[in-house]
Computed example of a mutant assay.
Amino acid sequence: MTGKVLVLLIVVAAVLAGAGMYYLQVYAYYEEVVPTGSDDVQLTPLNGDTPETILYEDFRAIDADSSPIRYRACFTTPTGLGTLEDIYAPYTGAAPRVAPGWFDCFDAEAIGEDLAEGRAKVFLSQRNLEYGIDRVVAVTQDGRGYVWHEVNDCGDKSYDGSPLDPTCPPREN
């Protein structure tokens, strides 16, 4: 009898711990971002370093203090993809990161397919938003837009302990 009670306690503890970890990963740290309405979506021009706000609507975003790459946002824009390509800097190598299921406007798999098939392009929003982290914006042909954070080359090297190359900015302590 004592063995059955111990097994039951262990199983209950494991289920509670698993449920707690799931909740912490999917819900606990994320917060809805309150849009400013004026500068939530910015892109860096081809010939500049200062991001500019583009026209956007229907902005939704989430973020968490627990990681610099947890930011996700969705929006729509009336500006055509061709116009954006003519004015703003592209960003190569970006891949959307999975968002929690409850943030249903951001489907990383669908965004990745749009990028792979050429139905969307990724632009640089802001380089080194935080050391080693770039904000990027993807826009589809039909005007849907998505924002997330990417670890850049300096961030990769800094986080894995590799020597930084001279193009990396100095790290603030």
Rank of each mutant, 00 (worst) to 15 (best):
G80H: 02
G145R: 07
L9Y: 02
T76Y: 00
F106S: 11
A19F: 07
G93P: 08
K157I: 02
C105A: 12
E109S: 14
G143N: 01
Y23W: 15
D134E: 13
K157P: 00
G145Y: 08
F75M: 09
T44D: 03
G112T: 10
Y30H: 11
S66Q: 12
L24Y: 14
T36A: 13
G93A: 10
I87Y: 01
I87S: 03
M1K: 06
A108R: 12
C168L: 11
L8W: 04
L6W: 01
F75A: 09
L115E: 11
L164C: 04
V11A: 15
K4N: 05
I54E: 07
L24E: 11
V33I: 10
P100Y: 13
P166G: 11
D153Y: 06
N47P: 00
T83V: 05
Y71E: 05
F106Y: 15
P100Q: 13
F75V: 10
D114H: 09
E32K: 14
F106K: 08
I69V: 15
S158R: 05
A110F: 05
G80Y: 00
K4G: 09
A64W: 04
D65L: 10
T77W: 05
D39L: 04
P96Y: 03
T50V: 14
D63V: 03
C168M: 10
T83L: 01
P68A: 09
V5F: 00
G101S: 15
L84C: 04
V33R: 10
I54R: 07
E150N: 12
A116W: 02
T83Y: 00
P169S: 10
P170C: 05
W102A: 13
E172T: 12
F59V: 06
V5C: 00
F106T: 06
A28T: 08
N152V: 12
N152P: 06
T76E: 09
A61N: 06
A61S: 12
G93L: 08
V5Y: 00
E113L: 14
D40E: 08
A19M: 11
W102E: 09
E52C: 01
A73K: 04
S66I: 08
T76N: 10
C168E: 11
C154V: 08
Y23L: 08
I133F: 14
G155H: 03
W102K: 12
G112Q: 09
C74T: 15
T83M: 01
Y88F: 15
L164T: 04
V147P: 02
D160E: 06
T50P: 01
A14N: 02
V7D: 00
D104G: 15
V147T: 14
D86H: 01
A94G: 14
Y159F: 12
T36Q: 11
P170Y: 07
G161N: 02
I133E: 06
F103G: 09
A99L: 10
K4I: 04
G18W: 08
L164Y: 05
Y71L: 13
G143H: 07
R127E: 14
G161H: 01
D39Q: 07
K121T: 15
